[in-house]
C-alpha cells in the first residue's frame, strides 16, 4: 500500500489510514486534560464548526486539518496526534484562534501536542537544531563573519550587544536549557539519527 503521507513505516501508515475509532484501544482519557493544561485553553468546548480549518493557511496545501486535531484531542487520541507528521505544519499564525467562536486557542492545542510529542523524542530535527544554536551562542540565528564585516560598514560593532558580545551570559542560558532537560533531549534525538 502506498502512503499518502509517504511514511517509511508501513505499520504506522496503515494505522493512520484506519478511520475507524475504537475507544477502548485508541483513547487515553487523560490526554484531553493534559492538552488543556499545557495549552491553557479549554479544548473540550470545541463544537467542531471548522472555522479553524477554514482560516488556516496550511490547510489548502496539505492534509493538515486543525479541526481534526481538535476532535482527536477531545477523543483522547494521543498516539495518533503525536505521531502524525501534520502536527508540525502549523505556522502558529493564530488566525484560527482569533476566529474561534468558542474563544478557544487551537494553535496552543497544537503547541501542547508538540510539547508532548517532543518529550517522547518525536520532534523534527530543525527544531532541535535551534536548541543547539541557542545553547552554543545564545542565538537561534547566530552571527557570522560576513555579517560582522557588514555591521562594521554600517557603523555598528561587529558583535551586537547580546550574548555575541558578552559570552559571559552563556553559562546561565546553558544551565536553564539543562534544568529543563532541553539540551539533553536535543543531544539524544539528534544523535539517534546518525
Amino acid at each position: 500500500m502506498t502512503s499518502a503521507k509517504a511514511y517509511k513505516d508501513a505499520a504506522l501508515a496503515a494505522r493512520l489510514s484506519d478511520r475507524v475509532y475504537r475507544p477502548a484501544e485508541d483513547s487515553d482519557p487523560s490526554f484531553t486534560a493534559e492538552v488543556e493544561k499545557i495549552g491553557g485553553t479549554a479544548a473540550h468546548l470545541c463544537f467542531q464548526c471548522g472555522t479553524c480549518t477554514g482560516s488556516c493557511p496550511s490547510a489548502p496545501r496539505s492534509s493538515y486539518r486543525i479541526r481534526t486535531f481538535m476532535r482527536r484531542a477531545n477523543l483522547g487520541m494521543k498516539d495518533v496526534c503525536l505521531n502524525d507528521p501534520d502536527l508540525w505544519l502549523c505556522t502558529t499564525c493564530y488566525t484560527c484562534s482569533d476566529r474561534c467562536p468558542r474563544d478557544l486557542i487551537p494553535t496552543d492545542v497544537i503547541m501542547a501536542m508538540r510539547n508532548m510529542a517532543a518529550k517522547q523524542g518525536i520532534v523534527p530535527k530543525n527544531f532541535l537544531a535551534t536548541v543547539n544554536f541557542i545553547y552554543n551562542t545564545g542565538h537561534g540565528v547566530p552571527n557570522n563573519d560576513a555579517n560582522r564585516v557588514a555591521r562594521v560598514k554600517l557603523g555598528l560593532e561587529p558583535e551586537p550587544e547580546t550574548t555575541c558580545k558578552y559570552p559571559e551570559f552563556l553559562p546561565a542560558i546553558r544551565k536553564i536549557l539543562e534544568a529543563y532537560g532541553t539540551k539533553q533531549l536535543a543531544d539524544k534525538v539528534l544523535s539517534e539519527g546518525q
Binding site: N115, N126, V131, F133, H139, G140, Y166
Partner: peptide, 15 residues
C-alpha cells in the same frame, strides 16, 4: 547579554 527571545514556534514547540 540578551539572547534569542527564544523563537516562539521553533523553540516553544519543544517545551
Amino acid at each position: 547579554g540578551a539572547s534569542c527571545c527564544p523563537a516562539p514556534g521553533a523553540f516553544g514547540s519543544i517545551d
